[in-house]
């Protein structure tokens, strides 16, 4: 049995935690069902192409099994202007928009940075405002129409990660690593999954158990059915179920 126990402690794949958040006590957005409004007014690529890129980036995060996230894109372009967003007066956030004054708005080098993100939290750590700036500054080296589609998907998925509250990761293969070098698809690494799950933990079955249609991400109360199941399982494995069942040795 000592040998069997030792097997369990052998590290066969060296996955380590390297994720971070953008705030010291960040709690994510109040809702897990975020709708990204898209302002296409100044975009330098076709709307259909942009929507397709956004959908792919969003779905990368929607596929995290342990996170309670349901992201979507609004069907119509937002009427919010870039100026309103920069002035923090936009009403529909999170936003994704193309910025013809990218360098001025973000302070980033528009020859090297194709996109940037911004997210603000209130005093409780809840994210209340945020969005993704796409570089639509004509003549700049990193303007989005000059970026390969596959790279744009990865870049946008990374920026959406920031809007959701994730900071950079020191794992160079994580989506939240600062560089997209060496990446061809928006692969969500286990490290990214852990980081986003810490912000939006999934409590499957909780909504049905409490008859609540709107699942709030912070409602992580354990539903009664799973408490009963857990107790039954623990009683059984600890051998206390003999008071209920006749114990028999099996295979």
């Amino acid at each position: 049995m000592k040998l069997l126990s030792l097997i369990g402690f052998v590290t066969l794949s060296p996955l380590a935690i390297a994720w971070t958040h953008t705030g010291s006590n960040l709690r994510g957005w109040a809702t897990s069902q975020l709708v990204f409004s898209v302002n296409t007014a100044n975009c330098t690529i076709a709307n259909a192409e942009l929507f397709s890129i956004i959908d792919e980036a969003i779905n990368a995060w929607n596929g995290v099994p342990t996170a309670n996230l349901s992201l979507s894109r609004s069907q119509v372009a937002s009427t919010t202007t870039v100026a309103e967003f920069v002035a923090l007066t936009a009403t529909d956030s999170p936003l994704i928009f193309c910025d013809p004054s990218f360098a001025t708005s973000t302070g980033a080098d528009s020859d090297y940075v194709p996109a940037a993100a911004q997210a603000f939290s209130d005093s409780s750590g809840e994210l209340v405002y945020g969005g993704v700036y796409l570089n639509a500054q004509l003549g700049s080296g990193a303007e989005i129409s000059g970026i390969q589609r596959s790279q744009m998907v990865i870049i946008l998925a990374h920026e959406i990660g920031h809007v959701l509250g994730l900071g950079h990761s020191s794992n160079l293969k994580a989506l939240m690593y600062y560089s997209v070098a060496g990446k061809t698809t928006p692969v969500i690494a286990q490290d990214d999954m852990d980081g986003i799950t810490h912000l939006y933990p999934r409590s499957e079955g909780a909504s049905q158990a409490f008859g609540c249609a709107a699942v709030h991400r912070q409602n992580d109360s354990v539903p009664m059915v799973w408490l009963v199941m857990a107790m039954a399982s623990l009683l059984g494995t600890l051998g206390l179920g003999r008071f209920v069942f006749k114990p028999e040795r099996l295979l």
């Binding site: 052998v10 794949s13 690494a189 399982s233 059984g236 494995t237 114990p247």
Partner: peptide, 28 residues
């Protein structure tokens, strides 16, 4: 190795007969 992990696992099971061939077996 970034999207999937191969690690060790420890498990305990306890089985309870429910008739001649069937059984209930909670595990952790």
């Amino acid at each position: 190795n970034e999207v999937s992990e191969i690690k060790g696992v420890l498990r305990i099971r306890r089985g309870w007969h429910l008739g001649k061939r069937f059984y209930f077996e909670p595990n952790f």
